[in-house]
């Protein structure tokens, strides 16, 4: 006696392979995104890619309303991320301005302020309140802060004459001497 056993029809092989490939690709993508998020800020020793910073009117650099990092080749760049709503930023505003005044005449050091997710009227009021004169502009679309993977404000990045990051300061500076001592690592 023979019995007809119905043959079990499974999911076609191509569909199984496609589904597994899709799941693996999705997991890889999630992994990449998570690892990027946990990377922290850019690290000293990293070459900083060129970026553009539009400047507020009244804060232009040699008549230019926008600067690129590459414009400052051969100079130490002190890139400060700040915002008008950031209270700790106020603690270091005067120190940064004083340090800028100290180096301005030499032309060896450039201070750049990148205003992070801020509104222009409040940003201008902040600059005026603390008498800040160094080059400043909005970080449009948070492109620069994303490139540096900043965790908050204030954060300051010291870039050497060849465009390599050599120091990261997270949080406000406590004194002008602190800023000078970091700059002095590249300009004795």
């Amino acid at each position: 006696m023979t019995e007809n056993i119905p043959q079990k029809r499974g999911v076609p092989l191509w569909a199984q392979v496609s589904i597994w490939l899709f799941i693996v690709a999705l997991l890889v993508l999630i992994g990449v995104i998570l690892s990027k998020r946990q990377q922290g800020t850019v690290q000293p020793g990293d070459k900083i890619p060129d970026f553009r910073l539009p400047l507020f009117s009244g804060y232009e650099y040699e008549g230019q309303s926008e600067v690129k990092l590459s414009d400052f080749q051969g100079k130490v760049v002190v890139l400060n991320f700040w915002a008008s709503w950031c209270k700790p930023c106020e603690q270091e505003a005067a120190e940064l301005e004083e340090a800028w005044k100290f180096y301005e005449a030499s032309g060896d050091v450039v201070f750049l302020g990148a205003d992070y997710v801020d509104t222009e009227p409040e940003a201008r009021a902040y600059l005026k309140k603390f008498g800040i004169t160094f080059f400043n502009g909005p970080d449009m679309g948070t492109k620069i802060s994303q490139m540096f993977r900043i965790r908050g404000v204030p954060e300051t990045y010291f870039i050497d004459q060849s465009g390599v990051l050599y120091y990261v300061k997270v949080g406000p500076f406590t004194s002008v001497d602190e800023i000078k001592s970091i700059v002095a690592q590249k300009i004795p």
Partner: peptide, 8 residues
């Protein structure tokens, strides 16, 4: 807002 602060 997107131009100033990003699509996020």
């Amino acid at each position: 807002f997107v131009a100033n602060y990003g699509a996020r």
